[in-house]
Simulated scan of single mutants.
Amino acid sequence: MRAIQLDAPSLDALKTVDLPEPTSRPSEALLKLHAASLNFIDIAVATGGLPVPRFPIIPVADGAGEIVEIGVNDLGLKAGDKVIPHFMSNWQGGSIAPQKVAAMRGVTSVGSLAEFVAVPVSSLVRLPTHLDFTQGSTLPIVATTAWNALQTGRIGPGSVVALLGTGGLSIMTLQLAKAAGATVVIMSSSEEKLARAATLGADHLVNYKVSPEWDAKVLEVTDGHGADLVLDTVGQATFARSLKAAAFGGTVFTVGFLTGTAPSINLLDIVVKALNVVGNNTGSTDNLAAAARAIESHRIVPVISETYAFNDAAAAYARLAAQGQHFGKIAIQH
């Protein structure tokens, strides 16, 4: 089978190879993958930011395809069904635990840049019926994380959600938050991207180059209330302002570390407002399934900025690594 192999922690170490087609064990399904999508964890793996047990590896966490072979299972899945394999294949449900996050597709196990892959049946989620494979490939990490952020923040009609940037996670959270009836404040340095976010339902648009004190703008446009949920996808450079932008009793959901991992904060911002500061490491297959049901129910279509051919995977990596150049997700078609 055709695959893309990463031989070392370098974007220059991606190469097309021909490998034997995998076989599946009784607890697994053999999938023919049709698309993959990139996340920043894939960039971290390919640049040495996230150590992996060994090289070479078949990279990329997220993908979508159809079942080629599957044994008897409790999910009612059969050959020909369109599915999404979850990124953390051992985490079926429940709270996070070391053994549940030990297996990560594209990091510790075979990822999505291959024509075929064998994955645990318990890690599969049906592709929403209104989505194609490329759209579905964007869901495992961002939809699971967005869903957990909204659930953790208890977001519903009348809630306020603040989003930093217009990458895949922020845009999926915008779409799910609007479906939940929330008001969304979104930040970007691009007026064009802010305008695109408005077409998806964003209620308040903040250009952080024009207004560097974007936390004050969040308070301003919410009449001093602040955001019930701040999704911090950036890290060190934004975390202190995320705390200030949050409402009393609100949640700061921190998932990003693009600008570093050691922010300087004032603990009083957390204590006085009784904030919930929550870290997140994606979530379970059950979480992904719940997100997929919501996406299907509301007919949400993931936003894909650019799609690359399989042999152009290195260009897709370079595009995402450039940061700030895309709106939504970057996908790779097999």
Rank of each mutant, 00 (worst) to 15 (best):
L6I: 09
S10D: 14
D12S: 13
L14P: 12
K15M: 07
T16F: 13
D18C: 13
P20H: 12
S27F: 10
L30S: 05
A36T: 09
D42M: 01
A46Q: 08
G48F: 00
P53L: 04
E66I: 00
G71H: 00
V72Y: 12
V72M: 03
L75D: 07
G80N: 08
G80E: 02
V83H: 12
H86L: 08
H86G: 04
F87E: 01
F87K: 04
M88V: 01
N90I: 05
N90D: 12
N90C: 07
I96P: 11
R105I: 00
R105T: 00
G106V: 00
G106P: 10
V107C: 14
V107E: 08
V107H: 14
S109N: 09
V110N: 13
A114P: 05
V117A: 08
V119M: 09
P120C: 10
P120F: 11
P120A: 07
P120D: 04
V121L: 10
V121T: 15
V121P: 12
L124H: 12
R126N: 06
P128A: 10
T129R: 15
L131W: 09
L131Q: 10
T138P: 06
P140I: 02
P140K: 05
I141D: 05
G156A: 05
G156K: 03
P157L: 04
S159R: 04
A162Y: 00
T166H: 02
G168D: 03
S170N: 03
I171V: 15
I171K: 10
L174C: 03
L174A: 02
G181T: 02
A182K: 02
T183A: 01
T183V: 02
V184D: 04
V184Q: 06
S188F: 06
E191F: 00
L194F: 06
A198K: 15
G201D: 04
K209Q: 12
P212V: 11
W214C: 01
K217L: 10
L219T: 13
E220L: 14
V221E: 12
T222G: 06
L229Y: 12
T233Y: 02
Q236N: 07
S242P: 02
S242L: 05
A245M: 09
A246E: 00
F248N: 13
G249Q: 10
F253H: 03
F257I: 15
T259V: 02
T261W: 06
I265H: 14
I265A: 15
N266W: 03
L268F: 14
I270V: 15
V271F: 14
V272F: 15
V272S: 15
A274V: 15
L275V: 10
L275S: 14
N280G: 09
S284P: 03
A290D: 09
A291C: 02
A294Q: 01
E296T: 00
H298R: 09
P302T: 09
V303G: 01
Y308N: 06
A309K: 12
N311T: 09
A316I: 01
A316R: 05
A318M: 08
R319S: 12
L320W: 02
Q323W: 00
Q325G: 05
Q325V: 11
H326P: 03
G328S: 10
K329V: 11
I330N: 07
Q333G: 14
H334W: 15
H334R: 15
